[in-house]
């Protein structure tokens, strides 16, 4: 069983979505809220493709025989660039002072798409930094609302430490404590939720600069290569 992605035949197994099959076949489709260990939910929209002529998120589109998927067209890349610019515009993303810089997927997808500016007028939201936990820093200025920590904590850790509240542009990450402080939750350093943040919103303390800036994951190779050949 195959479908085509930009003219390439992509084999797939029943149950796979377009992104899953494409990545398995060594073809990168930009994405942020998709993670191979979790059920795709399609909120960031960065993996948008043209599927049989209609735009759709490729992470939630089931692969099916004969599907025609277009990914690297000028129109689709333009959509993705705009979405990445929306994310930069919405949050407070000051890469030079972020210890995740170089390992950050938002940044890396921006590089991949040639994004050189947020373009829109930044919203500069007032968002909290929570250092109350002894081993973990939560800086929601950088949160892109991908819900990976929400999903990991609920589905793997069984804790629901993270959740979303508010709506629209005021939607925000919350933690499972009446005080609203991470230090008052049951978060443990072994929790899966700590390892899935694609940006620098959830960080382990005292580990930030073990690899110097300039020698980090996406400094060396573009995310399109790292994602499909991680071991190289």
């Amino acid at each position: 069983m195959t479908f085509t992605l930009d003219g390439h035949d992509i084999p797939f197994e029943p149950g796979q979505t377009v992104v899953q099959a494409a990545l398995a076949a060594g073809h990168y489709i930009p994405h942020l809220c998709y993670h191979p260990e979790f059920q795709p939910h399609g909120s960031c929209k960065v993996c948008t493709c043209t599927v049989n002529g209609r735009t759709a998120t490729s992470c939630t589109t089931p692969a099916s025989e004969g599907l025609e998927v277009a990914s690297e067209t000028p129109e689709i890349q333009e959509i993705r660039r705009d979405l990445v610019q929306f994310l930069f515009t919405e949050g407070n993303h000051f890469c030079p002072s972020c210890e995740q810089s170089g390992d950050c997927m938002l940044q890396a997808v921006g590089y991949e798409l040639g994004v050189v500016t947020g373009h829109y007028n930044p919203l500069f939201p007032n968002r909290p930094v929570d250092a109350s936990h002894p081993d973990v820093l939560l800086d929601t200025n950088r949160c892109i609302l991908c819900e990976l920590c929400v999903r990991a904590s609920a589905q793997i850790d069984g804790k629901s430490i993270f959740a979303l509240s508010g709506r629209g542009i005021t939607k925000h990450l919350i933690v499972n404590a009446e005080s609203g402080r991470l230090g008052d939750t049951q978060l443990a350093t072994t929790d899966k939720a700590l390892d899935v943040c694609p940006v620098g919103a959830i960080l382990r303390k005292r580990t930030g600069f073990r690899v110097p800036i300039g020698r980090r994951t996406y400094d060396a190779r573009p995310i399109s290569q790292v994602t499909v050949e991680p071991a190289k």
């Binding site: 399609g42 909120s43 960031c44 929209k45 960065v46 705009d82 979405l83 929306f86 994310l87 515009t89 919405e90 829109y120 007028n121 919203l123 609302l145 979303l164 508010g166 709506r167 629209g168 542009i169 005021t170 939607k171």
Partner: peptide
């Protein structure tokens, strides 16, 4: 629309607010 966007997806969440501004 900016008030009523649920905020789930990036384009509507950010787009409705940019349009409002």
């Amino acid at each position: 629309f900016a008030h009523e966007s649920c905020g789930f997806c990036t384009p509507c969440r950010v787009g409705t607010t940019l349009v409002k501004h």
